[in-house]
Design a protein around this nucleic acid. Sequence first.
RNA 1: GGAGGAAUGGCCGAGCGGUUUAAGGCGGCGGUCUUGAAAACCGUUGUACUGAAAGGUACCGGGGGUUCGAAUCCCUCUUCCUCUGCCA
Length: 425
Amino acid sequence: MLDVRFVCENMDLVEERLKLRGKQIDLTEIKKLANERLELLYTYETNQQLLNKSQNEMANLDKKSEEFAKKRDELKEISEQSKKAKTRLAEVLESLDKLILYIPNLPQESVPVGASEEDNVIIKTWGVKPSFNFTPKNHWDLGDTDYMDFERGSKITGTKFTVMKSYAAKMERALINLMLDTHGEAGYTEIFPPFLVNRTSMTGTGQLPKFEEDAFKIEGTDYFLVPTAEVPVTNLFADEIIPESELPIKYAAYTACFRKEAGSAGRDTRGLIRQHQFNKVELVKITTPETSDLEHKKLLEDAERILQKLNLHYRVVELCGADLGFSASKCFDIEVWLPGQDNYREISSVSNFLDFQARRAKIRYKSESEKKNSLAHTINGSGLAVGRTVVAIFENYQQEDGSIIVPEVLRPYMGGLEIIPSIVK
RNA sequence: GGAGGAAUGGCCGAGCGGUUUAAGGCGGCGGUCUUGAAAACCGUUGUACUGAAAGGUACCGGGGGUUCGAAUCCCUCUUCCUCUGCCA
């Protein structure tokens, strides 16, 4: 969330920056509540001071004296006023929280202006599109049903759940290991977190309260299925103060991810692209404000490395204001080339949140030079979405007969397998 | 799932409703002494809000209550430990 104080003192700037997201947001109610908070705080603290100062006096008075009774009644009056202010203060804070938690992060100044994803800016292209002397197939034509069983997935669970089988199942597992090993070599510590998180964690990283309809909730509990490993891993440091010497913290985590995909009904109905459950390896960094921009760019490179190892053609786009996620201040998407769809598709999203998540989750660090505590910066990115990587391999490495060449770097992870036999009839 | 016990500062550990301004110890930091170190001694020590500052307020697992006044009494929730049941 944004700093209430900053919002009140820079209302014009904040409104201007939020416009980059294509949204008009009214901040006057926030300012009103913030002022009331200060007034109440003053009333409460003045009364408390009076009460505290009377402590010794009361202790030393004869409990049966008239003076004691008189003083007691006097203090009772003050105490009641104090409690009233405190109650009202709690209400004001709650309303204030409610408002501020729904306000998205400010886009960084460098973020391109735009109205939709059409306005994202391509900043890099790596590799070349593979050429085929035949018409490349979709991954579902290459995989259905012996490698990817869409129908039985729907039967046992529901639509947008798929059963991975045989070499495709092995490839999911192999990719997870390849990704975790690669990131491990780059200095990321491996984390295997719980797949269920509580409401506080979901709020800390910004999935709640605004996007509850996107999350799967376990009935009868306050637990949510993780929509991304970002949630458990970033919240590892919630409510903690990290010594600066330990920064940057670099974590890599595999989890299954669960998303309701509310609002995207009718899109990507076929194939593995959009699923309610998918595997993902996520990279998370906690940094100081000074280094977050650099670490953001380095994290992008770490994610790109996987595609480079797999020799998959991709491009990097910087998201324009309108396409930016709620918590992000700046975001790069990596889009892999999918010949079967004749299109680039997002396979990784690498965001810098600055102190937006840190303020929500209370992730701080102790500065060595100044000996004070400050909010940390958080960064994360997919490294990569595993299911979509399988899609990319199937479509980019297909041969005319429908068999699929296993990328060399993946072979040691698949028992030396070189070719996935064709099941195309 | 059942039965007990516990929760106090970075850590350990005291704490009869009002000199608690949370004792004491350890650790950390600074200093004295020393060629250097150790030891000893002295000082210091968290977080948030508020304030220009001095300072003030709050925080003894969370929330509520009793009281002029709660770390202390009451209710409730959570977490951890021990024993026990079931279990990959």
